[in-house]
């Protein structure tokens, strides 16, 4: 042996999983819902998605370049942020909106706090809330999808199913059908309309062990119980199902509440976090002005994460009996 041997501490083998492979799986899991969004809302939706991703990646690239940091765009996390942001936008927003949102997400929420792993809020959601507050008019105009049952008089924009249900006297009067909401035939943001495709994506991520079942399942269950008890049409199971399939809940539950950086890593903490954002979602949806609440609930949960983790450090193996 002529060459020197490598030396390091154990372990000497590593699992195949990398940050990039995880992000790639998230993108793959989002593709069905993304494609459906483009089918429903046309090529302009595709343009918005591309602009959003490009804005996020370019911002991160320039930040790293400008500050002579190692280039990190290859880990695909900026692509995920851009895609999630676009999926959370209505398809009728002006083209500069996803660009502005992308810069906000990556520059303000991610890079200024130290880059990947250091952001205290989900960048895509924080940017969505930023846009929602700043441009609430445009951000709440929802164009009618190409394929769908209900159509409004002007044919351009309509209320989301959740808003219709919220203001309607009875469930029947809202004119919404659970089937349309489940399949993705009603109004909404580009990526949130089809609960079915989002659930399929979520199952793919759980099967690939990219995410664990705990946060999405507990979150959805909490929302279900909450609206069943306290919702406008409480004790009506169809209404509960419509609440679950409507708005950003499925997108939020599988793809944003599970964001690694901003959700707790302690087992008990994950349960507390999921219940907390579930209750917040219910409160915002039922008591708030808007029929929506997932985004705000999750970013509030993000902010609570460090505190939740602090009080839920698990007892070590064999140390369960001891206090502290």
């Amino acid at each position: 042996m002529s060459q020197l041997l490598n030396v390091s501490t154990n372990p000497h083998v590593l699992a195949n999983v990398t940050t990039k492979s995880l992000m790639r799986d998230v993108i793959l899991a989002l593709l069905p819902a993304t494609i459906w969004g483009v089918i429903q809302f046309g090529p302009y939706a595709l343009l918005l998605i591309i602009l959003s991703i490009a804005s996020c990646v370019a911002t991160e690239y320039l930040w790293n370049r400008g500050f002579h940091k190692e280039q990190t765009i290859g880990d695909l996390s900026a692509v995920v942020t851009g895609l999630l942001l676009a999926l959370n936008l209505p398809s009728g927003v002006p083209f500069w909106m996803p660009i502005l949102g992308g810069v906000f997400a990556i520059l303000v929420v991610k890079c200024l706090f130290g880059g990947l792993g250091q952001n205290f809020m989900n960048p895509a959601l924080a940017a969505r809330c930023f846009l929602l507050i700043s441009f609430s008019g445009i951000m709440t105009q929802f164009p009618q999808p190409r394929f769908g049952a209900a159509s409004t008089a002007d044919g351009v924009s309509s209320a989301t199913p959740l808003a219709a249900i919220k203001t309607a006297e009875t469930l029947g009067a809202s004119g919404q059908s659970l089937k349309n909401m489940f399949l993705g035939l009603s109004a909404g943001t580009i990526g949130e309309i089809s609960a079915l495709l989002l659930i399929l994506g979520g199952i793919y991520l759980i099967a690939r062990k990219v995410i664990t079942w705990d946060i999405p399942v507990i979150y959805i269950a909490t929302v279900a119980v909450f609206v069943f008890l306290f919702g406008q049409h409480h004790f009506d199971l169809t209404y509960v199902m419509m609440e679950l399939c409507g708005g950003g809940l499925m997108l939020g539950a599988f793809f944003m509440a599970t964001d690694y950086v901003t959700s707790p890593i302690t087992p008990k903490g994950r349960v507390i976090y999921a219940i907390a954002i579930g209750v917040l979602t219910g409160v915002f949806r039922i008591c708030g002005n808007s029929a929506e609440g997932v985004s705000y609930a999750i970013i509030l949960g993000n902010v609570l994460t460090p505190l939740i983790e602090r009080v839920t450090i698990p007892k070590a193996f064999g140390r369960e009996g001891k206090k502290k």
């Binding site: 995880l22 990190t72 990947l116």
Partner: peptide, 9 residues
């Protein structure tokens, strides 16, 4: 090594 993404694995 790259940045921790807090995946909790």
């Amino acid at each position: 090594a790259s940045a921790c993404i807090r995946c909790g694995r």
